[in-house]
Design a binder for these strands. Structure first.
Length: 1033
RNA sequence: GGGCGAUUAGCUCAGUUGGCUAGAGCGCUUCGUUUACACCGAAGAGGUCACAGGUUCGAGUCCUGUAUCGCCCA
């Protein structure tokens, strides 16, 4: 074997960092991700990336999300379809503005100090910085996106889509301005979407306030957690089922402090008092103060009973008489200007002094907080823009898009394109989607921010003159039932509303995309653009269209043809937390603007990555793992393999977070502490596990004010979970090294008839593995695909096949050809998961010559990334080889166990004494037996059994091993007797099953037959075992 | 309060229409550096499948209830 020298071309161990950068460059040079729209009938595959927020670098959740997408895209590309993966990033309005403001505040600058233009410039600089980081990370991960088509939700292409979508919706009456209660953040003074509100449990109080009845005949007691809002009360409500309701019907209450006369109304929303009931009922009095301007439920009650709405607060949540509160008596003057917290104390004190405070009880409840400023949300009445998503054209379309089998109940009939197309994987998320739409509320899309798409509406208020317009200036479009709607230019939509109280007429003009002259004309005429920007999800909702050039591909020639070829996309791959925020809205918009077409056919929801304690990885806990660190310490393939392995359909995955000791480089499990909020985190300072006395600061330590120093450096987070991936890539690498050393002159032709058992078996296994992988991917079972690839490479190929062919490969040109071909196919099979190591060894394997077998098609390619997925013919399936190998593997297992249990030295050669039925097989596989378990000799077993041998039972026959060193007869007897006992147990259980008539009659015949043959086998094994025991004595 | 999900080996998780002795990786024990790989190989220990009922010839798998944990919505 002089060929060993050729392994020299590969180092002993795979070091990812040595080859990954060059491989990325190769992919980029070859443009593997770039796709042009193909001919109409060609097969297409498309995924749009969930655009990461430009707020910060990508975390492990992104690594998971994007690894899975890349696996799909690489697989479909290898299958020969035009596979487009559209990359890009999201401007993330609130989140980005927030991080930029925080950075400014570090130097004491507020955004208002900078002004709008300068602030947007700062935000743009932040975006440029993080966009580069994110795109770099995606490339590092190996993401084979079409980088030429990289988009950003605020770039000109996407902006055109946002402008036109807004215009169309405005024109069609689906966007309107409305006074509504919003989730108001009084610190940042902006409205928040429902999902931007974080619920927190707060230990507060329930105050019991007495409101005197107007006629002086006693009082009612209301219970409230927010006494300060009573200044805006416009009713007291009671449940109509309450026995006290009848006597109070039609009566009034005189509101303390304010003196307002407010009605008692009956509404079944009111919880009746019940000492045994739920938390709310135990604290209830049966009387509810109703403050429509400051509570969403009260708002609804107000609508039902036509109550006054009195706003008593300014936008900063201080008590104010400038925002709708007019009946302010002198008694209430002293509350004006107080913060809501101070007002609460003052109001309670007033009631106490007036003898109207009945009692106070401790009360824990859930209060919405701003995810941005972390102060309690104030339900606040303000003017906002809404999309009427509850309209049948939007919500109905989204519901009808769901596939029949995933729709709960009868799916509404539709009959337009796209109906019944969307399927969720796992299917249970279809329910989340459906329930969300069934309880949908209109979508507030305006945000009081500077960073985002500015609302394209220009407004002018003019004094009312003469007669009010009583009819639309022109006919509104179909479906638009808004008053005073008029249409002018095809790119201009004007609406007029009348404010009778202030005697003004408001003219609002919405302008379509690409009409700067209209905008200028409006400004010239004194119109001012709305200062607000759109909710980020408005532009995200258009992502599958905007990235493909809608509505004006001719204006952006790079995008021409994309929409027709690639929308609908094939699958949206995302986390479940944005099913409502994003998935739903993409479906509504795509269907609305593209004639019912859905944005994607499949929605795959992947699990969440948690830390070792089941907590979400978050910046504030310092428990996140940076994918770049794993790429550097373990290699990208290791990261990707583990990501694929954990992508199971049932549950979220815990990934224990370890530390890297900066003193020694070793990985260790940190000491954990519990934070005041109850989270498990790494203690701020840790001892080095191996360098005595040395300390380090953790990421959590950094957050709590520890500053790293030269003596006490920062310790990076990592996870030993990725070791398995590193080991696997190294295994693949070394299998190739082995092959390079043995494949000297592969045969140019292969005669399948004369292939060895091992070769036939390996090819047969390969067929099964490729089939399994294809099936797994079709069902989005990434973990199964990873398992299939892992097992065939490590268990079948390395552990068995390579060991089995060691004795013969050197002199067998045909076998060399088989090895080479199988290796090539395995690299293709593995490539979508581990693109780097497969690409790194590819040129070496390619250099060895043709790789093709009858029934195995492997067209050559420069790069494995652009190679074809292996196509195997069923003719390679070899049941006989699989059965024989299975038998041989069991025999090897028995021999190995016998050797191990009897402490036979590894180098000691032993002889196998086989009964006739086994002898042929053993002799035919003598080389393999020698290689796998050091059986040096196979001899026939005579009728008389020689002493001093070890016996075991194989397929009902007694086999002997001549172990050279001899056998301890007592240990041997004990082993055989325990074996016999186990067999007796098996026989008893099988007999029991077969003597059960119901089993024999009802179970499928093949199972019953199987049971019978098992019984036969066990009985034969028992006889042979007992014979062996007798032979011992 | 409503909805969804989870509970399987010391740890992290598989287990596809119910069907042989419930699997993997890590960790642990023992042995081994044989010329692909110690990021390796061989052997082994370790599970009343949360609990209680039910359906069935047969339940980790289906149904009901209980407990605990998680997420979403109110």
């Amino acid at each position: 074997m002089s060929t060993v020298h050729s392994t020299v071309s590969l180092p002993r161990a795979y070091t990812p960092a040595d080859s990954e950068p060059a491989i990325r460059q190769q992919w980029q040079d070859a443009g593997i991700g770039h796709v042009e729209p193909p001919e109409p009938d060609a097969s297409c595959y498309c995924i749009v990336i969930p655009p990461p927020n430009v707020t910060s670098a990508l975390h492990l959740g992104h690594a998971l999300n994007n690894t899975l997408q890349d696996i799909l895209v690489r697989y479909h590309r290898m299958r020969g379809t035009a596979a487009l993966w559209m990359p890009g990033t999201d401007h993330a309005g609130i989140a980005t503005q927030s991080v930029v403001e925080n950075r400014l505040m570090q130097s004491g600058t507020r955004r208002v100090d900078l002004g709008r233009e300068a602030f947007i410039q700062r935000a743009r600089e932040w975006k440029d910085e993080y966009e580069a980081v994110i795109l770099g990370q995606l490339r590092e991960l190996g993401a084979s996106c079409d980088w030429d088509r990289t988009r950003f939700t605020m770039d000109p292409v996407c902006t055109a889509a946002v402008r036109h979508a807004f215009f169309r919706l405005y024109q069609d009456g689906l966007i309107e301005r409305g006074k509504r209660l919003v989730n108001w953040d009084p610190v940042t003074q902006t409205a928040l979407a429902d999902d931007e509100v974080e619920m927190e449990d707060v230990a507060g109080h329930m105050w019991y306030l007495r409101y005197p009845l107007e006629d002086g005949d006693g009082f009612v007691t209301v219970a409230t957690t927010r006494p300060e809002t009573m200044l805006g009360d416009t009713a007291v409500a009671i449940n109509p089922a309450d026995p006290r309701a009848a006597s109070l019907r039609g009566r009034f209450v005189r509101l303390p402090i304010v003196g307002r006369r407010i009605p008692i109304v009956e509404d079944d929303y009111v919880v009746m008092p019940d000492a045994e009931g739920d938390a709310k009922a135990r604290y209830a009095t049966g009387f509810l103060k109703v403050t429509p301007a400051h509570d969403p439920n009260d708002w609804d009650i107000g609508l039902r009973h036509d109550l006054d709405v009195i706003n008593i607060m300014a936008p900063d949540a201080t008590i104010s008489d400038h925002h709708g509160w007019e009946d302010v008596p002198d008694e209430a003057r002293r509350f004006i200007g107080l913060t809501r917290e101070a007002a609460r104390e003052a109001v309670v004190a007033w009631f106490n002094e007036a003898g109207l405070l009945e009692s106070v009880r401790d009360y824990s409840h859930s209060v919405g907080h701003s995810y941005r400023s972390h102060v309690p949300i104030e339900p606040y009445l303000s003017d906002q823009w809404y999309v009427r998503v509850t309209d049948e054209r939007l919500r109905g379309a989204a519901l009808r898009a769901l596939s029949d089998e995933q729709y709960e109940g009868e799916r509404p009939a539709g009959g337009t394109e796209g109906d019944g197309v969307i399927r969720f994987t796992p299917s249970r998320y279809a329910k989340t989607y459906q329930h969300w739409h069934e309880n949908l509320r209109d979508w507030c899309i305006s945000r009081q921010l500077w960073w985002g798409h500015r609302i394209p509406v220009w407004t002018l208020d003019v004094p009312m003159q003469g007669e009010l317009p009583t009819a639309p200036l022109s006919t509104p479009p179909a479906g638009c039932d808004l008053p005073m709607c008029c249409v002018d230019d095809a790119a201009l939509c004007v609406r007029i509303s009348v404010d009778v109280a202030n005697e003004t007429v408001r003219i609002m003009a919405c302008v379509d995309r690409d009409r700067p002259e209209l905008e200028a004309a409006l400004v010239e005429a004194g119109f001012a653009q709305d200062p607000d920007v759109l909710d980020t999800w408005f532009s995200s909702a258009l992502w599958p269209m905007s990235t493909m050039g809608w509505p004006a591909p001719e204006a952006f020639p790079d995008t021409e043809g994309l929409l027709d070829a690639f929308n609908p996309t094939d699958v949206l791959c995302t986390a479940r937390e944005i099913i409502t925020l994003w998935v739903s809205r993409m479906v509504m918009f795509n269907r609305y603007f593209l004639g019912g077409r859905v944005p994607f056919r499949d929605v795959y929801i992947h699990p969440m990555v948690q830390d070792g304690h089941g907590q979400k990885m978050s910046k504030s806990l310092g428990n996140g793992v940076d994918p770049r660190d794993i790429i550097h310490s373990h290699g990208t393939d290791a990261l990707r393999l583990v990501m694929a392995q954990i992508a199971t359909s049932t549950q979220d995955v815990r990934l224990g977070v370890d530390l890297v000791d900066p003193h020694s480089g070793e990985t260790f499990e940190p000491e954990f502490i519990t934070t005041p909020a109850g989270h498990r985190v790494a203690a701020p300072v840790q001892q080095s596990p191996s360098v005595s006395g040395a300390e380090m600061v953790t990421v959590y330590g950094l957050l709590t004010g520890e500053s790293p120093s030269e003596d006490r450096p920062l310790a990076k987070n990592t996870s030993s979970r990725f070791d398995v991936g590193r080991h696997f890539a190294n295994k693949m690498w070394n299998a190739v090294r082995f092959a390079l050393g043995r494949i000297e002159s592969p045969a140019s032709e292969v005669d399948m008839q004369s292939m060895s058992l091992a070769d036939r078996w390996m090819c047969s296994r390969l067929v099964a593995a490729v089939e399994d992988a294809e099936k797994a991917l079709a069902e989005y079972r990434f973990n199964h695909y990873a398992e299939v690839a892992y097992d065939i490479i490590w268990r079948d190929f390395c552990d068995w096949y390579l060991e089995a062919i060691k004795p013969t490969i050197g002199d067998d040109a045909q076998q060399q050809r088989v090895l080479l071909s199988v290796l090539d196919a395995l690299l293709r099979l593995l490539h979508p998961i581990c693109p780097f190591v497969t690409e790194a060894v590819w040129p070496h394997v390619r250099a060895l010559g043709d790789r093709k077998l009858p029934g195995l098609d492997l067209p050559d390619a420069e790069l494995v990334a652009s190679a074809a997925w292996p196509v195997l013919s069923a003719s390679l399936i070899d049941e006989d080889a699989e059965q024989q190998t299975d038998r041989l593997q069991r025999l090897v297992g028995e021999v190995r166990r016998a050797r191990s249990e009897n402490d036979v030295p590894v180098k000691a050669k032993i002889a196998l004494l086989a009964p006739p039925r086994l002898e042929d097989m053993a002799k035919a596989s003598a080389g393999m037996l020698a290689a796998m378990c050091r059986v040096a000799e196979v001899r026939p077993r005579g009728e008389t059994l020689p002493a001093g041998m070890l016996a075991f039972v194989f397929d009902g026959e007694e086999v002997l091993l001549d172990l050279a060193g001899g056998v301890d007869p007592e240990a041997e007897r004990a082993r055989l007797e325990s074996k016999a006992e186990a067999l007796q147990g098996t026989i008893k259980s099988l007999n029991g099953r077969l003597s059960n008539d119901a089993y024999v009659q009802k179970a499928p015949a093949h199972l019953v037959d199987e049971t019978r043959s098992q019984l036969q086998q066990a009985e034969a094994d028992l006889v042979a075992t007992q014979a062996a025991i007798e032979a011992l004595s």
